[in-house]
């Protein structure tokens, strides 16, 4: 079901309309929703769980749970808020079960990571980028959970603050505050690792 083969056929329809169609038994409508949300969900889940395979399973479980519970969803509300709430709760459950997020890949000396973003496609660059990504996820895992989750939803999920607030059951200003405080701590940690802080 969740293959993404039918992506784009219903791309002009709103999430809520697609959800109504899915409630009427149109699996292709739900397939379109999968296409829209799978990647951002995956980015957040990888960051939260630190394991790509576990993250993929979790995203699959999130989407299947949304499909299985589609009858309980009221399309007058925002579908994306519902989906992100499910994903976040499942992530938190999984994360607690694992006790601590598993680091993807081996640890490297933090100072070895380049301070500038790397986008080239050579093997070495990919390796460096992967290591930077590991470090970033470790730094996020060291933050208070609500701050890290707010940052993940903002940067990896691409959510507006209103949706972050809804998914995390906070006010919009509270969501911004969580992101700001988290970024400040993260910046201090990353400066320290990069050796730019005295």
């Amino acid at each position: 079901m969740l293959t993404g083969r039918l992506c784009g056929r219903l791309m002009s329809d709103s999430d809520e309309l697609l959800m109504r169609l899915a409630q009427q038994g149109r699996t292709d409508a739900f397939e379109e929703l999968v296409c829209r949300y799978r990647r951002p969900l995956l980015r957040v889940a990888v960051s939260k769980l630190g394991d790509a395979v576990a993250a993929e399973d979790l995203v699959q479980e999130t989407l299947l749970a949304a499909y299985a519970a589609r009858a309980t969803f009221n399309p007058q509300f925002a579908f994306r808020t519902w989906l992100w709430t499910i994903a976040l709760r499942l992530c938190q459950r999984q994360w607690k079960r694992n006790a601590s997020p598993k680091a993807a890949g081996g640890m490297i000396a933090p100072s070895a990571a380049d301070a500038t973003p790397v986008f080239a496609d050579t093997g070495l660059d990919q390796l460096l980028r992967s290591e930077r990504s590991d470090l970033l996820h470790q730094a996020l895992a060291a933050l208070p959970e609500v701050q890290a989750d707010a940052i993940r939803l903002r940067f990896f999920g691409g959510l507006p603050y209103e949706d972050i607030a809804a998914a995390m059951q906070s006010s919009v200003s509270g969501a911004k505050q969580r992101v700001r405080l988290g970024l400040e701590r993260l910046a201090v940690q990353l400066r320290h690792w990069a050796g730019t802080e005295s």
């Binding site: 940067f155 990896f156 400040e184 910046a187």
Partner: peptide, 14 residues
């Protein structure tokens, strides 16, 4: 915030 913003911008594009 710039170190965090730079890393997140790069890390979010996996």
């Amino acid at each position: 915030l710039s170190p965090a913003l730079d890393w997140l911008s790069a890390g979010g594009t996996d």
